[in-house]
């Protein structure tokens, strides 16, 4: 069951924990935008195995200094 949408109070706490000190105008922007973000996160949710790797994988050879 998907969680309840975040309340304004919860968004305020999350924003403060993220280090944001928003004006009233910018807080309203965040509340509105986060509503859309939550919907996307719900659509992306699915069961995963332990071994389910992300697309962005560390390839150490990319960081070997070039000879040029």
């Amino acid at each position: 069951m998907p969680p309840e949408p975040a309340t304004r109070r919860e968004i305020d706490v999350l924003a403060r924990r993220a280090g944001l000190n928003l004006t009233d105008e910018h807080f309203e922007e965040l509340v509105q935008a986060y509503g859309y973000v939550e919907q996307m996160l719900i659509r992306l949710r699915r069961a995963r195995s332990y071994a389910d790797e992300p697309a962005h994988v560390f390839v150490p050879t990319k960081f070997v200094p070039s000879e040029a």
């Binding site: 993220a18 944001l20 928003l22 922007e29 965040l30 509105q32 935008a33 986060y34």
Partner: peptide
């Protein structure tokens, strides 16, 4: 607006 959305 778009940057703020990414903060959470």
């Amino acid at each position: 607006y778009r940057i703020i959305a990414g903060s959470l």
